[in-house]
Each structure stands twice: as C-alpha cells, then as structure tokens.
Amino acid sequence: MSRETILNAVIFGGLLAVPLWACIVDEPFTITLATKVAILALAGVGLNIALGLGGLVSLGHAAFFGLGGYAMGILASHAQSYTPLMESPLLIEGTKSMPIIWLMALITSALAALAIGALSLRTSGVYFIMITLAFGQMFYYLSISWPAYGGEDGLSIYVRNGFPGLNTLDPIQFFAICFALLALALWLNARLIRSPFGLALGAARQSPQRVETVGLSPFRLRLAAFVISGAITGLAGALFADLNRFVSPTMFSWQTSGEIMIFVILGGVGRLYGPVAGAALFITLEHVLGGLSEFWHIYLGLLLLLVVLFARGGLIGLIAGREVHHD
C-alpha cells in the first residue's frame, strides 16, 4: 500500500469519525461543520476532474454549484407554496424529495456545462479562465435580477427536503447522506482516472497533438470531462442549499468559484483526496482562525501562497510525496 493510500484512508476515516464522535457527545454544530466539509469536498471533487485530470482551469464552477442550489431552491419553494412550476403544456410541480432534486441538479448543471464547455473549450489558457469566469458572472447577475426567485435576497426553504426512510433534520443522518454521495463521487473519480477515458484525458492535458495523432479528439475528451465535472459540482450545490435551507446569488459569485479552486489547490491538484483534505483544512481554518480574527483570510492567503510556492502537490503531496503510478 502506498503512503497516499494510507493517507486517503486516514482522511476518509477522520471525516467519518469526527461527526460520529460529535453525535455521541452531542455537539450538533461539529456535525454541521463536517457536513459542510463533505459537501464542499464534493464540489471540489467535481472541479478536480476538470482541473486535475483535464488541466482545465475553470473559474466558473460557481455556475454549476449555484445551478444545483437553485434547482433545489426553485423545486422546494414551489412545493412549500403549493404552486406548480409550470401548468402548460404539461404540469410540473415542485418537490421536497431529495433524489428528484439531485437528479434535476445533475441534469441542469450537466446541460449548462455542455453549453459553457462547448463554447469556452475552443479557447485555452488565460482566455479559458476568463470565459468561464464570464459565464459564472452571467448566472450571478441573472439570479440577482430575477425577482421570481428572490433576486438579491435569495430563497428560504423552511424545512429540509426529505429522503425516503431517513429523518434529514437529524444532523447525523443528513451528514450520512452527504458523506455517502462524496464517497460515491470519490469512487467514480478513482475509476475514471484509470479508465480508457481517464488515460486519454490525461494524455490530452500533457500532449494534445499525441491524442490527435492516435485518432482521438482532445476537444471531445475535455468537453466530456467538463460535463462530468460540472454535474458533480452541481450536485454539491443542491446539498449545500439543503444544508443551509437557503439559496442566494452568493452561490453563483466568482468568490465561490475561487473557494472551490482553493480547496483543490490546498489539498493537491489532481490528487484523488485533494479536495477532501483541502475542504477540511479550509473549514477548520475558517472556524479556528475566524474565531480569533475577522481577517482570517489573510492567513488563508499566506497558506495558499506557501502551498503554491513550496508544496505543488498540496497537503496530500506534502505528506504522501510524489504520485505513484500503479499497474
């Protein structure tokens, strides 16, 4: 077993153990923090597929995070006010069911990623960063200026959405849902890395000409990666909205895109558990340093600077060393 595998197991176990312990000693706030870590890590896992595996520096992942959030907000707000979303040509009603909301969040953000990717993947480098940023901002201003769904004030959902057989209002049960989805996404990501698609996508990042000369299309590979990436981040958005029982344009803001990227960079770009380590570190810092000073972002910035300068593999790279290749 490599050091990275052991470290990953420790992170996985740690994220599971902390809320369980908090549940026993009755510290619901700690469970909420752990839930937040799991959800933000999920958003980071999504971005890491585009950024780490595909080499696509997207500064617009807030678009997918927000779309997931609004998919939840819109469906649940219609359900709580007993008004249908649409009456003709076919009747669509709101819902308070998590599985349906997740499905809608996945579909909406995947479609958005398909459209955004199809346009922005024609560029690369700085242009790609700027175009994805611009798309994210488009959604941000759209959400602010659309009064039907709260505009600047956002949407409040009074009761958390339901999952068959579980009481989602119980913090530890909601944590279990988020953790299970994170584990599923990590499994998918791990498989993806070793799959034919993952090999071709990784090669397209390192040498696009090579991929073309064996008859594969780097553009299509990247687009597929962008769609998978956006969909996973969108699912995280739906969960995040459910955690707060609130959706607002902030989810679409470029700061959100930046934060998701910070999780990935802090933890280690392209490392399977990078986003999990990064999100955990981020939330811990926010909680600990945020208690000491209002300006805790200064320390975060300093840490980020150190990671970028001295630990290119992020936290995972620092502890586990260079990536090992398996047969």
């Binding site: 799959s195 034919p196 698609f197 993952g198 090999l199 090669a203 390192q206 991929v211 008859g215």
Partner: peptide, 27 residues
C-alpha cells in the same frame, strides 16, 4: 510528444485505444 507522467505501457495503450476506435469507457 508523449504523456510524460504516464508509464511507457500507458502511452502505448493510448495508441491501441485510438486504433480500436469507438467510445471510451469510464469505469
């Protein structure tokens, strides 16, 4: 123009993958 981070075998498999054509599996 090779995928430097990948193994020699993986680079050759990439070629075989292109030669086979069709869609690429994810799992």
């Amino acid at each position: 123009a090779l995928a430097m981070e990948n193994t020699v075998l993986e680079n050759a498999v990439l070629g075989a993958l292109g030669a086979r054509g069709g869609t690429l599996g994810l799992i």
